[in-house]
Amino acid sequence: MIHALALILACQLAGEILARLVALPVPGPVLGMALLFVLMLGLPRVAALIQPTGEAILRHLSLLFVPAGVGVVGHLHLLSSHGAGLALALIGSTVLALIAGAGAFVLVARLSGSVAKTEHPDA
């Protein structure tokens, strides 16, 4: 547990340092994720060490954005003055992204002969 946590934090630290060194626009933790993924692929011992701790952290992922979410109290004026635009942007882009993502998946799966094992029965 402690070793796994230390490794996760070390990956994050390495990611933060790398992001600043190379002046990448990608957040440090994302680079840390990529680094950890490569380590897990290359070293089965690391994968076995990380898996239970990683799953424990991710099980309560949504708790972690409560503090930032409460920050909405400082943005209520923005939400009311630009509410319509924000609402339409969120709804419109989510629907379009769902159509684009699922459509591209089905199309390329058909072209590349990657078949689904099970399907939604009545759609």
Binding site: C11, P29, A34, M40, L58, F65
Partner: peptide, 15 residues
């Protein structure tokens, strides 16, 4: 913990 949680997203990807 948001930072470490992001790093931990490597786990489902690996699984």
């Amino acid at each position: 913990l948001l930072g470490p949680a992001t790093v931990a997203l490597a786990v489902p990807l690996w699984l």
